[in-house]
Amino acid sequence: MDNDDRRVRVTRRTVLESGTATAALMLTGFPEVALSAEPLSDKAVAPVAVDLQINGQSHTLHLDPRTTLLDALREHLALTGSKKGCDHGQCGACTVLLDGRRINSCLTLAVMHDGQSITTIEGLADGATLHPLQAAFIAHDGCQCGYCTSGQICSAAGMLGESRAGMPSYVTADLAEARPELTDAEIRERMSGNICRCAAYPNIVAAIREAAGTPT
């Protein structure tokens, strides 16, 4: 590679293009994106009171309304078992149970859940006795780095509830069937909202299969 040639070219371009919108147009084909003419400073936000029932305990928090349920758990209640993997509902690490249903706690505001009941990974075990899913995850090595694990387990708990209620999935052959059988293919489809980059997937499916047969 000819270093000198490159430096010369860059310098010339710099001179030619500096300081004008046309310059940017030449490089990217677009005018510079105008920075929107919003008010210069952000307004102060008054905290909003919210009551949350978390793992059976009542908590009253005064939160910036922008606080997600996930950040309320992690930053305000030190319940750091729920993980922030993407903060956009694209990985599932933040999965918790809201009134028994699994949701991404990163994509909902804490203030929207006033008076509602939330179960996190910290609330699944019965004292020192692990939830059957937790025990099965250990036995089948359903975790490696552990960062998606809370979400996988909460998601699996919600999923088993959905399955028992007769919920179909995209891979259910006959949607009209009242109680589709929970095959491995069904487990995989239903758990696909929980990414595991270590890819403990086969072990997670084995753990869920085992726990599915255990009454909770």
């Binding site: 750091t80 078992g81 990974i121 250990i138 552990g146």
Partner: peptide, 14 residues
């Protein structure tokens, strides 16, 4: 079994 398994499945691993 992974000895840190319990910490990980209970959300206690920090």
């Amino acid at each position: 079994d992974r000895i840190d398994g319990r910490l990980k499945v209970t959300g206690a691993a920090r």
